[in-house]
Nucleic acid binder design. Structure first.
Lengths: 221, 221
DNA sequence: TATACGTTCAAGTTATCGCTTGAATGATGT
DNA sequence: ACATCATTCAAGCGATAACTTGAACGTATA
């Protein structure tokens, strides 16, 4: 039979340990933020609404599971994903959840279909049409995140500034908005507002982390 | 900002719930067995060494997470994976664990490198060479699992019978063995024994569940 | 109908997890 | 050296998960 049951068991235990690290709402949220780039504990605590001590503990748990790396920069400790493959792991987890959990489907239907009728545009299509000059790509995340890395050629228009900067956009071109990922609602909101103003707008599938994970070029600064 | 924080939180919670379902050694092992095909609670309890009540509870937990389906057949309740994509989820989880956890690498090194020097053969290569008649494919799992589904053209030689059935194998052909998956050691053991007898033997990458998940043909019965 | 068997349920114990609070550590700037 | 700030550690509480035991449920066989 499978000769040594010990190492098999140990492997199962390791897999379970990694899975358990993903097995908490707050840690999933932390990873979602960290998929954007490295962040300090304080920034993550603020973004998630967790106490510093609590955020720190969850981050250390993720680090112990091998999902995060930490480095010190001055008085801050910056965490980041240990590996770009972790985005893929989150993505597959999300797909599984979407397929299997009725409530997820319902949530998505409620918050996407009703607000954003059109299918999102795929990354490959987007690259093609952007090169042909057919689309204007806008990045609706906060400028801080834009600076850390964005789609080449994209214009930074944080959602708060969108209404004030409509005149910058070409009404003849199709506008494609993107933000942090499949479940970030920034881009959905942007599309809804743009359509209300008569623009032809769609959102890009997923968001920055998946773009990066797909090996597509990223511009920083 | 991201308009409603509620649905986002709910989504994180759902992802975490799925991950938490994978977050126990025994449930990972159960899924690994179920990747081979549907099994009764009794069979799974026997395979894993768990008590029936305990196995039942873990299975129900996996079912609640949407990872398993159950159906009744006579006095047995048969569980199976709710979705072939779950094999992919397990696979990505394994890859992440391998990349990130030193101990997993060490375990693999200890139990594979020392026993099975050659790289495993990829599925695409295997299909090609099998069609050209260059290799003999053997399935070293118990016959019960072979019957539930195997690689077309493969010969069922459970590991226990291998030594007694060496004369069936062509010493001139290359022999490729496969079993349940990347961490099943049946095929590794078979390769070691065959090489000791002078055969040219390798193992196939991964195993039956991944073959099935890759969309390659499967023969049953 | 009665019995056997596989499975699930319910209750109870032990261990672990998540969170808060308050103190300790480590780097920075005056 | 001192104060400041970001982070981590340590202790304690409440909640949840894992496992065992014994009983209940459903289905097939005598």
């Amino acid at each position: 039979m499978c000769k040594s049951t010990d190492p098999k068991r140990a492997l199962f235990a390791e897999l379970a340990a990694v899975a358990r690290a993903l097995g908490h709402e707050h840690r999933v949220e932390l990873l979602e933020h960290l998929a954007q780039g490295e962040r300090s504990v304080e920034a993550l605590a603020r973004l998630t609404g967790l106490s510093m001590a609590n955020a720190s503990q969850h981050l250390q748990q993720l680090r112990r599971a091998g999902l995060l790396d930490a480095r010190r920069d001055g008085k801050f400790v910056l965490y980041r994903l240990a590996d770009d493959g972790i985005v893929q792991l989150m993505s597959v987890l999300r797909q599984t959840a979407e397929r299997n959990i009725a409530t997820v489907g319902a949530l998505l239907a409620r918050y996407f279909d009703g607000r954003d009728g059109l299918e999102p545009i795929g990354r490959a299509d987007l690259v093609e049409r952007a090169q042909a000059g057919l689309v204007t790509v806008i990045d609706v995340r906060p400028r801080e995140e834009f600076d850390l890395g964005h789609v080449p050629g994209a214009v930074s228009i944080p959602l708060e500034e969108l209404d004030a900067r409509l005149e910058e956009l070409d009404p003849a071109a199709e506008i494609v908005a993107y933000c942090r990922g499949a479940y970030c609602l920034l881009a959905v909101e942007a599309v809804v507002r743009l359509r209300a103003k008569g623009f032809s707008a769609r959102r890009m599938e997923d968001g920055m982390p998946e773009w990066r994970a797909a090996g597509l070029p990223v511009v920083a600064g």
